[in-house]
Design a protein around this nucleic acid. Sequence first.
DNA 1: GATGAATGAGTCTTCATTCAT
DNA 2: TATGAATGAAGACTCATTCAT
Lengths: 197, 197, 197, 197
Amino acid sequence: MARTTDGDGTPVPQRLLAAATRLFAERGYDRTSVQEIVEAAGVTKGALYHYFGSKEDLLQEVYSRVLRIQQERLDAYADADEPVERRLRAAAADVVVTTIDNLDDAAIFFRSMHHLSPEKNKRVRAERRRYHERFRALIEEGQRGGVFSTATPADLVVDYHFGSVHHLSTWYRPDGPLTPQQVADHLADLLLRALRP
Amino acid sequence: MARTTDGDGTPVPQRLLAAATRLFAERGYDRTSVQEIVEAAGVTKGALYHYFGSKEDLLQEVYSRVLRIQQERLDAYADADEPVERRLRAAAADVVVTTIDNLDDAAIFFRSMHHLSPEKNKRVRAERRRYHERFRALIEEGQRGGVFSTATPADLVVDYHFGSVHHLSTWYRPDGPLTPQQVADHLADLLLRALRP
Amino acid sequence: MARTTDGDGTPVPQRLLAAATRLFAERGYDRTSVQEIVEAAGVTKGALYHYFGSKEDLLQEVYSRVLRIQQERLDAYADADEPVERRLRAAAADVVVTTIDNLDDAAIFFRSMHHLSPEKNKRVRAERRRYHERFRALIEEGQRGGVFSTATPADLVVDYHFGSVHHLSTWYRPDGPLTPQQVADHLADLLLRALRP
Amino acid sequence: MARTTDGDGTPVPQRLLAAATRLFAERGYDRTSVQEIVEAAGVTKGALYHYFGSKEDLLQEVYSRVLRIQQERLDAYADADEPVERRLRAAAADVVVTTIDNLDDAAIFFRSMHHLSPEKNKRVRAERRRYHERFRALIEEGQRGGVFSTATPADLVVDYHFGSVHHLSTWYRPDGPLTPQQVADHLADLLLRALRP
DNA sequence: GATGAATGAGTCTTCATTCAT
DNA sequence: TATGAATGAAGACTCATTCAT
């Protein structure tokens, strides 16, 4: 397997991805130079371009990974055998916890999407839409079943909730008074309360 | 007073600010070159550096203007002679309408703040904190008066609402099905419903 | 006029063009770095990009200048009030002398044209075609008048002659036994002899 | 003998040479990457460096092959038992046909020679000189015998003709009105007519 | 014979800012 | 007030070549 690992034994592509994620979150995509990434990962520029076609590909990889993980988790919660309000609450809380656990990814997500080329942007948007639609379907299910208010269009409710999720990277601090789970419970609670008929 | 205006009669500094705002929102701060700004404003580089010390100053000006406007409006609504739930609803809805009316500023705000130097960043954060505190005070007033639930800390509620406001620039489209006022009413409604005791 | 000149008083754009021409001819377009050009011209990279949009623009400028000069000279000879065989001989000899006087340009011309972008390439080809057609018209005039043989299509005769002109940069050495004018007379002579009826 | 061939059964070195020839002609030596060559040949980089010491060696091989072929053909025509004007005409026409049949090689030849290292360049030049001298000897033989004019030095006549041969790759198109043999006849004819006493 | 991961020097280009006029 | 030529540092990316396997 040649020299795919080095030092700590982590494969080079993953070392690069980790370094890029941290740096993109820290100083933004445009302010992070390829040079800084490879230095942080302990490899050379050539190695980076051996695995990734461009700096943008690195960003795109971060997105794909996050979206894949979140989608899988959402699907699991949404498919559970429970009343809809419990499933929605669980999903709403889980995305908060997962987001806090990967605050770097979240920060990148909502600040750097416009740095992707139109083509890649389109693909990411499509994946994200799929995610939103799954979430919206849960709300609509509850509305049809009469357990959620129909006062607000489900679409808007989804954006309302995800606005607060995206916003987490702006204000949440690990050393703050609330644990991730507490924050998640509160935010899920606010969502469910707003949906009471 | 020489030629402080030109063409349409708008003073040069304001033309620069308008051009910068549009471009920063369109392609991001780092992707906008000083050359593009001056071309869009119809002036030369020398002129820009005559009025603004740096590109960053331009960004900071955009922030200051938005914050000043929002603060003034919030103060007006908060000071009104009305029951607290009406004042909160009005303020919550107003910030949505104002944000939609200035989506460019909003987009810049939540994507480019980390481009400010630490010093300027600190100042902007301070102004924003003042704004948040005023909003939080309204919620706490309602909680103390028993008209709002105390289930969730006021702090978190504020972030919950402003998360959705920031998020507007991501999803709101002027040609969508809802008018700014309708969106505002819905979002304010969700907030108030979530706060029902 | 700011600092458009420096050292020897030659304007910066012309100094850059001269340096580029020499270097492109010496080591080829791709083997000449922008860094080398600006060093040879005694300016900085920024200055180059202030005047020329790209390295390719520099190459295109070399082409345009050569073509313009050659076309003007050809037109002058072709329009003269002389018998056609004298006009053709004069034009055929002149292009040889001019080419030898600017061997660098010639070397670039026939080695680097494929380095131009398709769009620029098309423009250069069009200009060159115009030049060829003027030359061909002279030959056809003589053929119609019976002073030149019609054994060979005029098109081919033109390419035959210009082949030898282009080839000059491959073999002609200023310190060789023949002066430019002597070479020119010989080559024109060969052309005219080949065209004898 | 392991896998020296693959797919179509052509040995790897020849597949590489063929791919390199096409690509060098198409986009120039410097613009062709080793990666592109091995991809076009359907092998890996390791394989290329197993058979060729460097990218330059590949170029040198193209040269050597062309020169060897042309020299052999010229020798055959020059040694024939025919009057000198017939031998010259045959040789002059043959080099045109052979060049057209291998336009790629010709294009490379007259555009990429300066990409060879001084040492290799010297060797190629020497071989080419030998070729030229053989051709020149034919002309001088005719001049001494009184069948060719002595108005122009034989040297110059050789360059005159080869100029037009080199030029072929610039203008000749397979789908044009003339067949390779027709072009060859015309160009040989022009040469012989120019040499009429 | 053949692989392909890794190197590291080198490429063109961009850009905020300065300053003589 | 305003110009625009010039700077110089930094940016992303390419590529021939090597070498452990």
